[in-house]
Simulated scan of single mutants.
Amino acid sequence: MAEGFATVNGSLALLAQRGDQTDKAIADHEQRLDALERSRWPLPSIAALVALAGLALSMWQFVS
């Protein structure tokens, strides 16, 4: 009976360790994803820049 409990306790310790490693990996992935989301250019900003560049070019051609 004691040997069975020892085996179960060992298995539970291994599962707990793997759970901790998984939690650390998930936290690392969340940090990396947050950094990527903060550093990317939002699409509306790019569209506004392209529109301003088009307006500036058309005004330059109109004036010339």
Rank of each mutant, 00 (worst) to 15 (best):
residue 1 M to V: 11
residue 1 M to Y: 08
residue 2 A to P: 02
residue 2 A to N: 13
residue 3 E to Q: 14
residue 3 E to W: 05
residue 4 G to Y: 03
residue 5 F to R: 11
residue 5 F to V: 06
residue 5 F to Y: 08
residue 6 A to M: 11
residue 6 A to Q: 12
residue 8 V to K: 06
residue 10 G to K: 12
residue 11 S to K: 07
residue 13 A to Q: 14
residue 16 A to R: 11
residue 18 R to M: 10
residue 20 D to T: 00
residue 20 D to E: 15
residue 23 D to H: 00
residue 24 K to Q: 10
residue 24 K to L: 07
residue 26 I to P: 00
residue 27 A to S: 06
residue 27 A to E: 06
residue 28 D to M: 07
residue 29 H to M: 15
residue 29 H to N: 12
residue 30 E to K: 07
residue 30 E to G: 00
residue 30 E to Q: 11
residue 31 Q to F: 03
residue 31 Q to D: 13
residue 31 Q to G: 04
residue 32 R to D: 09
residue 34 D to Q: 14
residue 34 D to H: 07
residue 35 A to H: 06
residue 37 E to Q: 14
residue 38 R to N: 09
residue 38 R to T: 05
residue 39 S to Q: 15
residue 39 S to C: 06
residue 40 R to L: 15
residue 42 P to H: 07
residue 42 P to I: 13
residue 43 L to Q: 11
residue 43 L to A: 07
residue 44 P to Q: 04
residue 44 P to K: 00
residue 44 P to T: 01
residue 44 P to F: 03
residue 49 L to D: 07
residue 50 V to H: 01
residue 50 V to M: 04
residue 51 A to G: 04
residue 52 L to V: 09
residue 52 L to I: 10
residue 52 L to C: 08
residue 53 A to E: 09
residue 54 G to S: 10
residue 55 L to D: 01
residue 56 A to E: 05
residue 58 S to Q: 10
residue 60 W to K: 11
residue 61 Q to D: 08
residue 62 F to V: 05
residue 63 V to L: 12
residue 64 S to M: 10
